[in-house]
Simulated assay, not measured.
Amino acid sequence: MTEAHGSTATPEDERSDELGVDETPPGGGNRRGRRAQAEKPEPRKRGIFARLALFYRQIVAELRKVVWPTRNELITYTTVVIVFCLIIIGIVYVLDLGFSKAALEVFG
């Protein structure tokens, strides 16, 4: 079973498969069962300001991971977008002009 690409199986899992042991023990994956869950303390609920502060810290942490474009890349990307938009505007204008002339000829 561990030969599969990306497998997370361990030798312990293989042995339990051979013995016919259920892979999902009671208690949602904890091998010790429900007893371990009962001993685990319930997480403390945070106040609104603590949650907002945590949210803000997570936003800042994610923004630090972003690879921002350089000035030259930004100019290049902006130019490409503007040129693409102008080309699409031209195509739509020509099609609109053609359809309006055709409609005028057909419906008079």
Rank of each mutant, 00 (worst) to 15 (best):
G47V: 05
D13W: 06
A38R: 15
L104Q: 11
L86H: 02
G27A: 12
P41D: 09
V80M: 14
T2F: 03
L97K: 07
V83L: 15
I87V: 15
C85G: 03
L74C: 02
C85M: 11
A103I: 07
P25H: 01
E12P: 01
S100H: 05
R31P: 13
R51W: 07
V92P: 01
V81S: 11
V81F: 13
I59A: 00
R35F: 14
G6I: 08
T10S: 11
D96F: 11
R64L: 03
N30G: 03
L95P: 01
D17Q: 05
E62H: 01
A103V: 07
R44F: 07
T8D: 10
L52W: 06
L104E: 12
Y93T: 15
G28Q: 12
G29S: 01
G33H: 00
I87F: 06
P69I: 10
L104R: 10
P26L: 08
E42T: 06
F49N: 04
R44P: 08
E42H: 05
F107D: 06
E62A: 05
A103Y: 10
V80E: 15
G90N: 14
P41N: 00
E62K: 03
I48W: 09
I82E: 15
T79F: 12
R51N: 13
Y77W: 09
V67G: 02
R64F: 00
I48K: 10
G108K: 04
D96S: 14
L97E: 11
R71M: 08
G6V: 07
L63I: 08
E105P: 00
S16L: 13
P69D: 08
V94G: 02
R34E: 14
L54R: 04
N30Q: 04
L86Q: 03
T79W: 09
L74G: 02
E105M: 10
N72D: 14
E42L: 04
S100F: 10
I87R: 06
V92G: 02
I48M: 00
S100W: 02
T76W: 08
H5G: 04
P26S: 05
P41C: 01
D96T: 12
V94L: 05
I75E: 13
R64K: 15
A50Y: 03
L95Y: 10
R57M: 13
R32W: 11
V21D: 02
F49A: 02
I59S: 01
L86M: 14
T2G: 12
V94D: 01
R46N: 09
Q37G: 15
F84Q: 14
M1G: 09
E39C: 08
I75M: 02
A103T: 12
I75R: 11
D96A: 13
R15T: 06
M1T: 11
D96C: 05
V81Q: 07
V106I: 11
K40T: 15
V83T: 04
I48H: 07
P69G: 11
V92R: 00
C85S: 11
Y56N: 00
V92N: 04
V106G: 00
T2P: 01
R15V: 12
S16W: 10
F55Q: 13
L95C: 09
A9L: 07
V92W: 06
N30A: 04
R15I: 08
I48N: 02
I75C: 08
R71W: 11
A50R: 04
L52G: 06
R44S: 04
G20I: 12
V80C: 09
N30W: 04
R15A: 06
D13C: 05
A38C: 04
E3K: 13
